[in-house]
Amino acid sequence: MCEFVGCQSSCIPFSKMSFLEYKDVIQSGDTAIVFLGHDSMFAIKVQQGGATQTKYGAIKHSTDLIGKKYGSKITCSKGGWVYILHPTPELWTVTLPHRTQILYSTDISMIIMMLELKPGSIVCESGTGSGSLSHAIIRTIAPTGQLYTVEFHKQRAEKAEEEFHEHKVDHLVTVKTQDVCKEGFGVTNIADAVFLDIPSPWEAVRYAKSALKIEGGRICSFSPCIEQVQRTCLAMTEQGFNDISTFEILLRVYDVRTVSLQLPDFGTGDKNSQDTPADDVSQSKRKRYADSQQGTIQFKSGVPLREMAGHTGYLTFATKYLS
């Protein structure tokens, strides 16, 4: 285990950063995702001697996990089995412990692309919240970028820092405990992009501007209410931001199903009946239907889920150009 900074002795050589780089074999200290089913997975920290309970029984880390390959099927003590997956920011987002409301991957994807993030980008974020977006940003800007994240809630900031350390990404992120609306991001003219997810983003827009590089950069603000968007857009215009655009992105998930619908019974017991109109088209159609089993038609369909997220928040993007 490598709980202490600087401890090398018990580390397996070439141990790598699991959130930043794929590796094949599970090691002690890794965060891994236990997959029980589509809507049922959770994250664990793999530890020598550790154990995890699932509804299929216990998983013993030392014997069941360490040294096994990611993606393996793990048999639990009661005979049931689970899959053990390599962590990704997307899996982390659906398994992380919530300390706040979080951003989900649909919005996150859009934020990362529209902020033009890539390896080497310098990004400012506030608030850190539960670190859902932070992990996705870090993944994208590694190995040479840097994230400056500001969270005014001391406990949350500390918890986030702990997680970054545990996930071995702390060298790419700086957490500051301060109020972004009063003190800004604590950095000037170094950021390629700024992201705001706070109740009053308009109060932080001027700090966002000063955090961005002289040659310019991108900004995004996430707000659930249109009034917040309204005020933020005004503040952005006042601060000289350009190309201000507001979007809403909605995810529609489809259940893939084979559906069968029953054919109507017209009471045509006698197939040679002369009563029905008998033009060629209807005859051939009737023949096709007659072939299908027991008077039903089967087809594959993508059925929308019964409920979907109708609204998460508005995303407002803008550019600061070279002034």
């Binding site: 997959f35 857009c233 507001t246 979007f247 992105i249 909605l250 508005y314």
Partner: peptide, 18 residues
């Protein structure tokens, strides 16, 4: 394979003016 998901996103733009 696991965790299969078929999805689509909708994108709606807004005009934001006072």
């Amino acid at each position: 394979v696991i965790n299969l998901r078929l999805s689509e996103t909708w994108l709606r733009g807004y005009q934001v003016l006072p």
